[in-house]
Design a protein around this nucleic acid. Sequence first.
DNA 1: ATATCTTTGTTAGTTTTAATCACCTATGAC
DNA 2: GTCATAGGTGATTAAAACTAACAAAGATAT
Lengths: 118, 118
Amino acid sequence: MNLGEIGRRVRESREARGLTQSSLAALVGVSRSAVAQWETGRSGQVGANLALVAEALGVGVSYLLLGEPGSPADRSEPPQITGNELALVRLYRRCGPADQAALVRLAHRFAVGQASPT
Amino acid sequence: MNLGEIGRRVRESREARGLTQSSLAALVGVSRSAVAQWETGRSGQVGANLALVAEALGVGVSYLLLGEPGSPADRSEPPQITGNELALVRLYRRCGPADQAALVRLAHRFAVGQASPT
DNA sequence: ATATCTTTGTTAGTTTTAATCACCTATGAC
DNA sequence: GTCATAGGTGATTAAAACTAACAAAGATAT
């Protein structure tokens, strides 16, 4: 995520829309100097205005950030384990290999004993 | 792009990886308080550390920002837990509450036995 | 040719804000 | 009870992002 690239894409998108720095600044609600600094890379990042800039330019936030075209809106699967499971994994990580194996074997015995659903 | 949502996803991703605020802070190179403030929404944004946070958590920048997986490159992520740990968690999930508690207690006993007193 | 208007780049100064430090609470182990 | 770990929050500090002002290049008209 090169930050200089973001400014370049802001400029390209702005010019493709036929906007001046002033008009984009008005749409976003910042000064024209701010837009100029985004585009010339003097500001490290567009920051909190990123969403507003993307909307004003008619592009996706992902495009400005990463250069990839708009993302298909399929949901990802973020969290996998819950708090209890997290605690177990933390303990597991502190065990030696033999103890880890013993834990897995015991868990397996317990699980099998619980009449596993298919 | 609700900024409070970003903190929520940082927390979920962090816990899914089994990291504490301290360990994530160390990975990113900031103080633990900074991580706490991201997650509680006290800081409006993660800002320039966004890319580092995403990398440390093994998720995409787009996911942290938008809750969507974003570009395909974002999806080439390392697994959040290792294969052995995942297997243990799966077995754990098939155990009854008493057996789950027994597993945790045993894991703790093992972990303590392995503990390196700092 | 020069005056003027438009657009953009850049520097200096101000303000916002994110990070750090410190202290606090809650929880669990011993 | 103490001790250790994990996390939340107020106050201070340092680093930004923003604004304002000035400068330069290009076009157009007179």
